[in-house]
Design a binder for these strands. Structure first.
Lengths: 152, 152
DNA sequence: GTACGTGCAAAATGTTTGCATCATT
DNA sequence: AATGATGCAAACATTTTGCACGTAC
């Protein structure tokens, strides 16, 4: 299969071993828009890989994040309100998130809005900031915290 | 004392009872620039309030956040790397944070940079987004993830 | 006096670790 | 063959909860 090869080369390019578990977890993460938690992914993937361990999901997600193939979303909100577990996203292109302050649900801001907003941030100011603070910026994370209408 | 009254009225304005614990925790949070965790605050405050319970710190922080007197910072990074516990900030005026992807340490972006960057975000685009997504934005959280030079 | 906050300990999560085994390189 | 990943269970850390008591309104 074509896709398998693509993923395989993505992995090996970054020094990750290509295992069935990693492949399945990455595919599931890539296929969903839902910003799943590690546990969500475990439940999505384990039907196909009987015997999968939750610890492997955690290990894999850490490896993917380190390799730049996934992002761990900064999680606000108390544990009660959805802030209790980390959420992941395989979309590496920079985009914004909406986070509901009641439920912790995370949604993507549509691409056109995301780029419109991100373009407004001046790279020269960021570079000036990097220089002044002695800090190398890897990622600009923007989260719009608020509430969806029609309270549940 | 003047300050006590100020805090008292801050609290009562928002329907919070004014207890010694809440006062001490709020003062400690307001006085520091260090974005402490609940446990940090517990250790800062408990010398003055013997018998203070960590659960009270958590309760108080939740009450302060709900009342808009404090913010829980979105916490990226794995549990190992400082993402394991929530950090709080009494500065309600919107500002940006730097987060070290190695250590989880959070630092404020200086006010002049913060406002320069925040001003670049067009309110009209945000309003359009709110309308399209059916979402009421309460807060724009921006985090610059990266690393400080001179690794520790 | 009533409603709410506090302290304590126990429970509930979420995440990591140690180790034996297994798969990928 | 060697290195690193997996699975399992136990350890760990963080946060929440239940309940008796105390305190602010």
């Amino acid at each position: 299969m074509e896709k398998t090869k693509q993923i395989r080369s993505l992995f090996t390019q970054r020094g990750l071993r290509f295992t069935q578990q990693r492949r399945a977890i990455y595919e599931a993460l890539e296929a969903t828009k839902s910003h799943p938690t590690a546990d969500d992914l475990f439940h999505m993937v384990s039907p196909r890989l009987q015997g999968l361990s939750l610890a492997t999901v955690y290990n894999t997600l850490e490896a993917l994040c380190d390799a730049g193939l996934a992002l761990r979303l900064p999680s606000g909100g108390s544990a009660k309100r959805g802030g209790g577990s980390a959420r992941y996203d395989a979309t590496v292109e920079n985009h914004l998130h909406l986070r509901c302050s009641r439920t912790g649900v995370v949604a993507d801001v549509p691409k056109d809005f995301s780029s419109k907003l991100l373009e407004q941030i001046s790279p020269s100011v960021l570079r000036e900031l990097e220089h002044q603070m002695g800090f190398k910026i890897q990622l600009v994370q923007i989260e719009l915290v608020g509430q969806f209408h029609k309270a549940s």
